[in-house]
């Protein structure tokens, strides 16, 4: 199998979510002395981008997205290990601390966003659900995060996004981190009201927003 065939197979397997073969294909690519960064950039990222687009167009559903993300991760783990060994620096798109705010245990939307961000090359620190203001801020400081992404699914927990932003100001780090908000009842108007830097209505747009915020 030529390296081009391996890359093509990897692309197809990520696209179809066939995660049994991707680790083996990544190992084959390494045996062929291919630059692992090239495999990531030419196979994995285009494939997962297309998966994200298909998800946005409702051609793919969550199980498809999860299987594709899993297929990609299995290959990525092997390729990243090789990158670490070789000393090549993989440029991160940025570091994002993400979580569902305190009082809210809804996880699905937040996890989809986290998966897509990771797939697009962001370093994602997923704090899970029911995350307090202190936990968000401590992690932003400790991990030197570029972006804070907060999700809220309940109308009663939406205001907590604003509370965290106020805490960021009090602790003097509001200008050090971009803040994006989302969640089913969250709107652009709410985002502006609480002083967030951006709002996204779905996971695909959240990734685009994160990319945009990193350029600002």
């Amino acid at each position: 199998m030529s390296i081009e065939d391996i890359k093509k197979e990897l692309y197809n397997n990520v696209l179809s979510g066939d995660f049994e073969l991707t680790a083996g294909l990544a190992q084959k690519a390494i045996k062929e002395k291919t630059n692992p960064m090239e495999v990531i950039n030419s196979s994995l990222i285009p494939a997962i981008e297309l998966v994200g687009e298909k998800f946005g167009r409702k051609e793919y559903f969550l199980p498809d997205l999860m299987r594709s993300a899993n297929a990609m991760k299995k290959a990525l783990d092997i390729l990243e290990e090789e990158i670490d060994k070789s000393g090549i620096e993989r440029k991160s798109q940025g570091k994002i601390v993400i979580g569902t705010v305190k009082g809210d245990i809804h996880e699905i939307g937040k996890s989809i966003v986290a998966a897509l961000l990771a797939a697009k090359g962001f370093d994602v620190v997923d704090l899970g659900i029911d995350v307090s203001s202190d936990m968000f801020i401590d992690n932003i400081i400790e991990k030197k995060a570029d972006i804070l992404a907060m999700s809220a699914l309940l109308p009663i927990t939406m205001p907590y996004q604003g509370l965290v932003i106020e805490e960021l100001k009090k602790r003097g780090i509001r200008d050090k981190v971009k803040v994006m908000v989302g969640g089913a009842p969250v709107t652009q108007e709410h985002a502006e009201k609480v002083g967030a830097d951006g709002y996204a209505g779905n996971a695909v747009d959240a990734v685009k927003l994160a990319e945009k915020l990193m350029k600002e």
């Binding site: 199980p63 999860m66 299987r67 245990i105 996880e107 699905i108 996890s111 659900i129």
Partner: peptide, 14 residues
């Protein structure tokens, strides 16, 4: 249920 279910959301779908 992602937090408490017998399988959880991701495991359930898979």
């Amino acid at each position: 249920d992602p937090t408490t279910g017998y399988l959880g959301f991701e495991q359930g779908l898979m």
